[in-house]
């Protein structure tokens, strides 16, 4: 089990995470949702030790988590300039088996692996990073908004791969499209601006959807009251 205990993190005076406690079971896909700026990416960066831990602990099977135990696919993956897709895969993977898997994922996702990554679109870069990183045989993998910019077909393929190829790993993923989370996750953590965390198991996803829908409706109602009906300024 991957456990996060009492993590607090601040940027200067601005507290992003406050005594956060989460746990992720092995072999499960867990979603992390929340509004922009609640600290999802910060949490992921702390887990991968891109940011240093300010307080609290992160353990895997009771031992301190080391960066090489975890794979992180950031929202904007890093690529060297003038590098081919196939070269990226070769550098990221560690074994022949991982290489074969990554190449297969790349092929399924229609990637021109012999082209320079510089010529790839945003979605293609995302797919390349996913192909290489998801093929890695590590206990935990974090996918930060893996669906952003990716076409509909590939989205379905990525979802299918996560659903079927997770095995005994823990997959943690964030997305702003709720259906992409509820379709494949076993459970979801919802983080709020007030540093509150709600846990929803698969049976309670309907409650999360209702909660988010009601919150949006209330905001929209406030908005309509404040700005009123638009006045036509362009028609004579």
């Amino acid at each position: 089990m991957l456990e996060i205990k009492n993590i607090t993190y601040s940027f200067g005076q601005h507290k992003i995470l406050d005594k956060l406690n989460l746990s992720f079971d092995i072999g499960k896909v867990v979603g992390v949702v929340g509004s922009n700026g609640v600290g999802k990416t910060t949490l992921f960066r702390i887990m991968c030790q891109i940011y240093s831990l300010q307080s609290g602990s992160i353990t895997l099977f009771g031992k301190k988590l080391i960066p090489t135990d975890i794979v992180f696919m950031p929202t904007e993956p890093f690529f060297y300039p003038f590098m081919k897709g196939s070269e990226y895969i070769k550098i990221v993977v560690n074994t022949k088996n991982e290489l074969e898997k990554a190449n297969l994922y790349g092929k399924i996702l229609d990637l021109p692996l012999n082209d320079l990554v510089d010529n790839y679109s945003t979605g293609m870069r995302k797919k390349l990073a996913f192909s290489a990183l998801f093929a890695l045989n590590k206990p935990a993998i974090i996918l930060d908004e893996p669906y952003n910019g990716v076409d509909l077909d590939s989205n379905e393929i990525i979802k299918h791969l996560i659903r079927t190829q997770t095995g005994d790993r823990t997959v943690i993923l964030s997305s702003h499209i709720l259906s992409t989370i509820t379709d494949i996750c076993h459970s979801v953590y919802h983080l709020t601006e007030n540093h509150e965390v709600s846990y929803y198991s698969q049976d309670h996803f309907r409650e999360l959807e209702e909660y988010l829908s009601n919150a949006t409706k209330s905001k929209l109602k406030q908005l309509d009251t404040s700005i009123g009906e638009p006045k036509s300024e362009f028609q004579q």
Binding site: I50, P67, T68, V71, F72, F78, Y80, I91
Partner: peptide, 11 residues
């Protein structure tokens, strides 16, 4: 800007 990337590759 490749330090994080390199850290993820080298143990």
């Amino acid at each position: 800007s490749d330090k994080s990337f390199l850290r993820s590759i080298f143990i």
